[in-house]
Amino acid sequence: MTSRWDADDAVTELYAAHYASLVRMAAMLMRNTAEAEEVVQDAFVAMHGRWRRLRDADKALSYLRQTVVNTARSRLRRRSVEERHRPAPMPHAASAEHDVLIRDEHSDVLAALRTLPARQREAVVLRYYVELSEAEIAQAMGVSRGAVKSHTSRGMSALRTALEGRS
């Protein structure tokens, strides 16, 4: 069935099935939903352009995930470079970080997650939130399964330390 989709069909179908969950995943990797949406939309546009090579909903979904993880990571990297070079922020700027997630009372885990290095954060989100298999995580992150294991366990230990230190 999916092989009969054209690129537009693929966008429609995959959007309906996975857009919201990809945005949630991206929002956990990044900081806010608006930015997460941009990243996911970028991924759909890229997927549209590649559809003839993907031709399959499952492949397209892993492609989308991989693209979202990559783009989120490079945006975060770029932003941290920008922030380092920016003059001292206006007093308002810190609170202007409209971080809906961090304000939420349940989000101590998520707040701690944001302090992790990108790879560890990705591994934890993909495993414990998206519930992917190790092989799928390896693919999404573009690393080996062994690396997934070590990022996950280091990430979880760091999370635990962070959370215990807090309470």
């Binding site: 919201a20 956990m28 939903t33 949406e37 809906v100 939420d104 349940h106 989000s107 101590d108 414990y128």
Partner: peptide
């Protein structure tokens, strides 16, 4: 897991 699920529910595209 539980915390991330709850957080996920707060995110509305």
């Amino acid at each position: 897991r539980a915390a991330l699920q709850r957080d996920g529910e707060q995110i509305h595209p």
